[in-house]
Design a protein around this nucleic acid. Structure first.
Lengths: 165, 165
DNA sequence: TCGAGATATCTTGATGTCGAGATACCTGCG
DNA sequence: CGCAGGTATCTCGACATCAAGATATCTCGA
């Protein structure tokens, strides 16, 4: 089965036969797939009344375990957004009653963001919905292929995640 | 080598041992890697005075081959953005002298967007820079692994690219 | 103890994107 | 021929994001 990147690569080979465009076979597919996933997720979360960015923040807190709280800084590293964006997100989630800000008892510069009961329920529901949806997409691959794909992707992501950049 | 998704998955298994979170091993890595790639690309293109979105549009036209022109609609399907966004992009690229709008001789509703000579040169330069940069990232994998990764990703993207969604 | 530099968060202004609707034009059926 | 429905592009308002800078606080060596 051909995809848009096959067409893209073929076009480059025709227009710029002097270049080695092999890297695009992997990385353009990653970018395009991510774009498609974003759209699919937006649809999936809409059933639960959540935006993708809300899901990202709520689930980061949910994963932290009881009492479901993290600093804005910890949320930054998990969600790959800037601090200004996170401040804005926390403001809006607070307005919707899904999280609340608490002063950090150990650092007066700091703040802790804690999930409310309602926020935790919404996160749990949306996660279940997301997993169901993602399982369908992955039905294209055997279980073994999924494992292999995950391993290859890990090798590419690891440098970014471990060397701060 | 561990990555952020390993930690994420471990956290879910601890907090929600009742759920099968296997799909995240693949799809969360795709999303996070794409996010990192976006940032890296922004840096790479800055050397050529281009934004990532400018690169996307210019190279779509460049790939089309002489006379380097496409309709806004064709550009939409290649770049996965909405029509309002594309209108805006074409406006700005026109302002920078990198593309120009021409009336479509066969359809008076239509427009053709054509690359200027300057636009073509900028696209070519930026592409070379991007490929050099991407080759470094992929040095983590053997040539065989890259081929395999590309094939697995193709299976996931193809349904999106071929069944309109 | 004091001060320099690091750190945590928030503020601000600019900008790009989306989504829905508007407009103009095309196509094909009756 | 005329009209209904489809298509191509643009307009507009709302909104999320980013980058850079501001503020408050912490840390640690002299």
């Amino acid at each position: 089965m051909e995809d848009e990147v096959d067409r893209l690569v073929a076009a480059w080979r025709r227009e710029r036969p002097d270049l080695d465009v092999e890297p695009l076979e992997v990385l353009s597919r990653v970018s395009r797939l991510a774009r498609h996933l974003d759209r699919a997720r937006r649809t999936a979360f809409a059933e639960h009344g959540l935006e993708p960015w809300e899901f990202d923040v709520l689930t980061a807190l949910r994963r932290a375990g009881s009492p479901y709280q993290l600093s804005p800084g910890q949320l930054l590293t998990q969600t790959l957004v800037t601090s200004g964006t996170m401040t804005n997100r926390i403001d809006r989630l607070t307005g919707k009653g899904l999280v609340k800000r608490l002063p950090d008892p150990d650092d007066r510069r700091g703040v802790l963001v804690r999930l409310t009961d309602d926020g935790r329920d919404r996160a749990d529901q949306a996660l279940a919905g997301l997993l169901a949806h993602e399982r369908e997409l992955l039905a294209q691959l055997t279980s073994g292929q999924q494992t292999e794909l995950a391993a290859l992707l890990r090798q590419l992501v690891a440098p970014f995640d471990n060397i701060p950049g």
